[in-house]
Measured scan of single mutants.
Amino acid sequence: MGSVRTNRYSIVSSEEDGMKLATMAVANGFGNGKSKVHTRQQCRSRFVKKDGHCNVQFINVGEKGQRYLADIFTTCVDIRWRWMLVIFCLAFVLSWLFFGCVFWLIALLHGDLDTDYKDDDDKSKVSKACVSEVNSFTAAFLFSIETQTTIGYGFRCVTDECPIAVFMVVFQSIVGCIIDAFIIGAVMAKMAKPKKRNETLVFSHNAVIAMRDGKLCLMWRVGNLRKSHLVEAHVRAQLLKSRITSEGEYIPLDQIDINVGFDSGIDRIFLVSPITIVHEIDEDSPLYDLSKQDIDNADFEIVVILEGMVEATAMTTQCRSSYLANEILWGHRYEPVLFEEKHYYKVDYSRFHKTYEVPNTPLCSARDLAEKKYILSNANSFCYENEVALTSKEEEEDSENGVPESTSTDSPPGIDLHNQASVPLEPRPLRRESEIGSRR
């Protein structure tokens, strides 16, 4: 089982795998120059863009038009607004034209077009017409509009002379109601789609790998820009990579689940303020055997998904993003964004995407760390350097704002901070800030 798991979770494809794949392509008759073999020097295209759209195009789909027309309502909801407006206008105009032609044909076959009612006051002739005051196609078209929109100006009306005319008036009224219901329903469904809710759900630009509770963890940050909550919010993550099976089958995008606390339930989050999602790199993680150097040379993509129900409509929305291997910062942490004021908490989104480097973060893999092949620094050293990194950030910001350097908390000259780390230190809580992250 261990060997199978290692093969499945191998992220960085070796040169031997690339040569094996190329040999397979030639042997199977696919070596026509169009096949692409992804190596370390040639990274694959992003499968999920940063804005959440999937970078996929469908080609050679059989009976595409028929399949889309069979699900016309979903098609109308998914198309762009400009095409929705075109369909909206065409549906009414074509129905008016169709029934206008029908009423014109009825008048033509009944002989109503030969009668001039402007110079004739004989009401008996008017009563013999199928539709009064309809003696041309324009008049028939206007009567069709008046019937379907129930305008009723009063000059044109159907008589009991022709039952077919009466039937067409009733039929057009029913068709008009159906068109109204369909168009209004599609427009309302399109307006109520929770897709735009994703514009106020954000992911951090970069993911980070750092120590948390004595273990290497992959972390990324999510935030909600609205005050309205995302009900039943939960997160998922998958690692996408290519691999070759033991039988020699090439899988271009193998999807591997990344555990973010599904078993323990901590994948469900209360997204009021930005939260750091934590994936513990343990023996079940696809990143277990990867060191910093392996991450730098790897070719994979981590897709992160945030799902929840919109509070206003109770409709489920899904926000997506992805991180390539070069977008994962090893040995970094996110800057705090949640600050405790006197009577409330304040979230500073200008710090949302910012990170700071944490010294002495192990550069080895989580496996080597678990097997004690890498000796961690003293816990006080880690905490102290973590505090120094934050303090230096604040000093830089104070210097930019014009604060005198004498007010900063610099260490005395001639003292090495790293050498001082081995000395037991008193706890130094942050002056006014605390970061709330997901705790395992």
Rank of each mutant, 00 (worst) to 15 (best):
G2P: 04
S3W: 02
V4T: 14
V4L: 09
R5F: 05
R5T: 15
T6R: 13
N7G: 14
N7Y: 04
S10C: 07
I11S: 15
M19L: 11
G29I: 06
G29T: 10
K34L: 13
V37W: 05
R40Q: 10
R40M: 08
Q42F: 06
F47D: 00
G52R: 00
G52S: 03
H53Y: 06
C54Q: 09
V56F: 14
I59H: 14
N60H: 10
V61G: 15
V61W: 08
G62D: 10
G65L: 14
R67P: 05
Y68A: 08
L69E: 09
A70K: 15
D71S: 14
D71C: 08
C76H: 08
I79V: 10
R80N: 15
M84V: 07
M84D: 05
L85Y: 03
A91D: 03
A91G: 13
A91Y: 15
S95V: 15
W96R: 00
L97M: 06
F98E: 00
G100V: 00
C101Y: 03
F103R: 00
L105K: 02
I106R: 01
L109K: 15
H110Q: 02
D112L: 01
L113F: 08
Y117N: 01
D119P: 00
D122F: 03
K125N: 05
V126T: 11
S127D: 08
K128M: 13
A129H: 03
A129S: 10
V131S: 01
V131C: 01
S132L: 06
E133S: 09
N135W: 05
N135S: 14
S136R: 04
T138F: 05
T150D: 04
I151H: 08
G152V: 02
G154K: 01
R156G: 00
E161G: 01
E161F: 04
C162Q: 01
C162H: 01
C162L: 07
P163C: 03
I164F: 14
V166C: 03
Q172S: 02
V175T: 07
G176P: 03
C177Y: 15
D180W: 14
I183E: 05
I183M: 10
I184T: 05
A186T: 15
V187T: 11
K190Y: 03
K190G: 04
K190E: 06
A192G: 07
A192R: 03
P194Q: 12
K196Y: 07
K196G: 12
N198S: 12
N198I: 13
E199D: 10
L201E: 05
F203Q: 02
F203V: 04
S204F: 01
S204K: 00
I209W: 00
M211Q: 15
M211S: 11
D213W: 09
D213T: 10
K215A: 10
C217A: 14
C217D: 03
L218G: 01
G223K: 11
L225W: 14
L225R: 10
K227C: 06
S228P: 04
V231G: 04
H234N: 13
Q238T: 11
L239F: 12
L239D: 00
S242Q: 13
R243D: 03
I244Q: 12
I244Y: 13
T245V: 12
S246G: 12
E249W: 05
Y250H: 15
D257T: 06
N259K: 06
N259E: 10
G265W: 11
I266D: 14
D267A: 05
F270Q: 12
I275H: 10
T276Q: 10
T276C: 05
I277C: 10
I281N: 01
D282N: 14
E283P: 11
D284H: 15
S291Q: 05
K292Q: 11
Q293H: 08
D294N: 04
D294Q: 10
D296E: 05
N297M: 09
A298V: 08
A298P: 01
I302H: 00
V303P: 00
V304F: 04
L306D: 00
E307G: 08
T313P: 11
A314V: 09
T316S: 12
T317D: 08
Q318N: 14
C319R: 04
C319W: 13
S322K: 01
S322W: 01
Y323Q: 01
L324T: 09
A325I: 02
E327Q: 04
E327R: 00
E327V: 01
E327S: 00
L329R: 08
E335R: 02
F339A: 14
S350I: 10
S350M: 07
H353R: 01
K354Y: 06
K354S: 08
T355N: 01
Y356E: 15
Y356K: 15
P359T: 12
T361K: 01
T361P: 02
P362R: 01
L363A: 13
L369V: 15
E371N: 09
E371K: 07
K373V: 07
K373N: 10
I375F: 03
A379Q: 13
N380T: 09
C383H: 13
Y384E: 15
L390C: 15
T391N: 05
E395S: 09
E395V: 11
E400K: 10
N401Q: 11
P404D: 12
T409S: 08
D410E: 05
D410Y: 03
S411E: 11
S411K: 10
D416S: 10
L417D: 13
L417N: 14
A421S: 06
S422T: 09
V423Y: 08
P427F: 04
L430N: 09
S434E: 15
S434V: 11
